[in-house]
Measured scan of single mutants.
Amino acid sequence: MGFKLLSKLLVYLTASIMAIASPLAFSVDSSGEYPTVSEIPVGEVRLYQIADGVWSHIATQSFDGAVYPSNGLIVRDGDELLLIDTAWGAKNTAALLAEIEKQIGLPVTRAVSTHFHDDRVGGVDVLRAAGVATYASPSTRRLAEVEGNEIPTHSLEGLSSSGDAVRFGPVELFYPGAAHSTDNLIVYVPSASVLYGGCAIYELSRTSAGNVADADLAEWPTSIERIQQHYPEAQFVIPGHGLPGGLDLLKHTTNVVKAHTNRSVVE
């Protein structure tokens, strides 16, 4: 069995187990497998329904001669939608809004960016022009300005110390501490036991640490421990890039980060 097929099978099995364990909360999309990078042309966006009122959005972007996937989250909030992270750029984010209108038909009224990198804030200006209120932590807003990236308009308070959590509509926002970046936030959907790890969490097929220019490698494993301790009931975990899975993604990420750190020390 090929690795790609095995990865998709694991996603399907995880979703099936969740649907059985929580039949009222989960209505997993039966329309197909989780979209992969090879299936999404740059400039297009796919939506994948995880649970009743919960979707991931998947886009792709060219970077350094390669094409990478990027995940975000959409959560229903009454007759409105909360968006977590842009679709990595203005063109993708405009396509995301169009796809949401086509498939869901509810307005996106608020959006949260989970850290300051372009795959999370690139497209904020498109959201703002569409009347979406954009939010991020003060740290993310400051770092985005320093980096020359787009800056969300509103500040999220109460997320300055490791372990801080605040309720934001249908989700809980959690600051686990520094990891992929010093400002990275985690998003949890309690009604569906869905954990969105953003770039602080890796997919299972990833074996290298990737972009760690703004990471705190020493603190990252401790931050992941905080996530595990705060959300032990999480059933569906979405990484910032690639295929979702279960809580095993947290341990896998820790292993990859520690291996990278150990290699760096040896070198």
Rank of each mutant, 00 (worst) to 15 (best):
T253K: 01
V124Q: 03
E44T: 14
F168D: 01
L204E: 13
V265W: 14
T261G: 13
D183P: 00
V265L: 12
I100W: 00
A259S: 13
E233W: 09
M1R: 06
S193K: 15
S208G: 11
I104N: 04
N262D: 13
H241T: 03
E145G: 14
I50E: 02
L243R: 15
Y202T: 07
E172I: 06
E39V: 11
I17Y: 12
G89S: 05
D216V: 09
I201P: 02
H252K: 02
P239T: 04
Q228C: 02
K8M: 14
S16L: 12
V54N: 02
I227Y: 01
A200W: 04
Y48A: 13
I84N: 01
Q49H: 11
D118V: 09
S62Y: 07
P152I: 04
E233T: 12
I50Q: 04
K251V: 12
F174S: 04
Y188D: 03
S155A: 14
D85E: 02
S113R: 03
K4M: 10
D85A: 00
L204A: 12
W55C: 03
T36E: 14
D125W: 06
I17L: 12
Y188E: 01
Y231Q: 01
P69H: 14
P176Y: 00
H57A: 02
K4F: 06
A259W: 08
A234H: 02
T207H: 14
P232T: 09
P107G: 06
P23L: 11
I201T: 06
T60D: 04
G105H: 15
H115T: 00
L143R: 10
H252V: 03
V212Q: 12
G78Y: 07
I84R: 00
Y68N: 08
G123N: 05
S70K: 02
G123A: 04
L106G: 04
A144E: 03
R206H: 15
L97Y: 00
N211C: 06
V108D: 01
P244R: 03
L250G: 02
Q103N: 15
I17Q: 07
I238S: 03
V126T: 10
S223Y: 03
H241R: 04
N149W: 06
F3D: 06
P41I: 07
T253R: 02
L10T: 15
T222I: 11
L204M: 13
A133V: 13
E233Y: 12
S16N: 06
L10D: 15
T14F: 08
L185E: 02
L127W: 00
D85V: 00
P232Y: 08
T153A: 12
P69D: 15
E33I: 10
Q61E: 06
W88H: 00
R142H: 14
H241V: 01
P176N: 01
Q228W: 11
V75M: 02
D164K: 09
D64N: 12
V257T: 06
A51P: 05
T114Q: 00
R128K: 13
H252I: 01
T109N: 11
F174E: 00
H154N: 10
N262I: 11
A59F: 04
N71A: 05
I40V: 15
Y231E: 02
Y231R: 02
E145H: 15
G122F: 02
G163I: 04
I186G: 02
I201D: 04
L81F: 00
A259R: 13
G122S: 09
G2Y: 15
G123I: 02
L204W: 09
P221N: 08
A179G: 12
A95G: 07
L13G: 07
V42N: 11
H154Y: 12
E233D: 13
N262Q: 11
A192V: 12
L250Y: 01
E267N: 08
F116W: 15
E101K: 14
R167E: 13
G240P: 04
V112R: 03
A51W: 07
A15R: 13
F26M: 15
I74C: 04
Y48W: 15
K8T: 15
S113C: 07
G89Y: 05
I151F: 07
T140A: 05
S7C: 12
N149Q: 12
D29N: 10
D216N: 12
R76S: 12
R167F: 11
A234Y: 03
P138I: 08
M18Q: 15
L47C: 03
L243C: 08
F168Q: 02
D64K: 11
N149G: 11
I84Q: 00
L81S: 01
E145C: 07
V171Q: 01
E267Y: 09
F3V: 13
V75R: 03
A192L: 06
A192G: 10
V237P: 01
S30E: 12
V42Q: 10
E172C: 03
V42I: 08
E267V: 05
E80H: 08
L106E: 03
E219N: 08
S264R: 12
E267I: 07
G122T: 08
I100T: 06
N211Y: 15
Q229V: 12
P244K: 03
T140Q: 05
A25N: 13
V75E: 02
L159S: 02
E172Y: 04
D125C: 04
M1W: 05
S22Q: 13
D183L: 01
D125N: 13
G158M: 07
S160C: 05
Y175F: 11
V194A: 05
T153R: 10
E147V: 15
L6I: 09
V108G: 00
Q103H: 15
W88A: 05
I186L: 06
L127H: 04
P232I: 09
K8G: 09
L143P: 04
G246R: 08
L13V: 15
Q229P: 05
L96I: 05
I238Q: 02
V67F: 15
T114R: 01
V42Y: 07
S205I: 08
V112G: 03
G240T: 02
Q103W: 10
G2E: 15
A130T: 09
A59L: 04
K91S: 15
E145D: 12
G240S: 04
R120L: 01
E172W: 04
T134Q: 00
P176A: 05
T134S: 06
P190S: 10
D183C: 01
P69V: 11
E225H: 14
S193W: 11
T207F: 09
I227M: 12
Y68K: 03
S191Q: 13
H252L: 03
A94E: 15
G197F: 00
I74K: 03
T254K: 14
G148A: 07
E219T: 09
E99Q: 14
L73H: 04
S16P: 13
A165T: 12
A95H: 11
F3E: 08
I17C: 11
L247H: 14
S223W: 02
F168S: 03
T253Y: 02
P190M: 07
S31G: 10
I40Q: 07
W220T: 02
H260Y: 09
L73Q: 02
H230T: 12
V112S: 02
E150D: 13
A213M: 12
S30R: 13
R110I: 07
I201E: 03
G72P: 03
L127D: 02
L250T: 03
A95P: 01
S160P: 07
E147I: 14
Q61A: 13
G245S: 06
I74R: 03
E150G: 06
E33H: 09
S193P: 04
R206S: 15
G32F: 15
E225Y: 09
S193E: 14
S191T: 12
P176H: 04
A21H: 14
E225C: 04
L204V: 11
V237C: 05
V37I: 13
L24N: 14
E157C: 06
R206L: 15
Q235P: 05
F236E: 07
G2L: 13
A136G: 10
L73I: 07
A21C: 15
L24H: 14
T261K: 13
S223C: 04
L195G: 00
P244D: 03
I74G: 02
A95T: 10
L249K: 02
A179P: 03
Q49T: 11
M18H: 15
V266M: 12
L250M: 06
R142N: 12
Y68G: 05
A133W: 08
P69T: 15
V257P: 01
V171R: 02
E80T: 09
E101N: 14
H260W: 07
T134K: 00
T261D: 13
Q49I: 08
Q235A: 10
S160A: 13
V257F: 05
W220D: 02
H180A: 01
I238V: 09
T114F: 01
H230Y: 09
N184V: 01
S62P: 08
G131D: 07
I186F: 06
H154E: 12
D216I: 08
V75Q: 02
V194I: 09
P152M: 03
V108C: 00
A59V: 09
D248V: 08
D77P: 02
V54D: 03
D52P: 13
L47D: 02
A215I: 05
P232W: 09
R167G: 11
V266D: 15
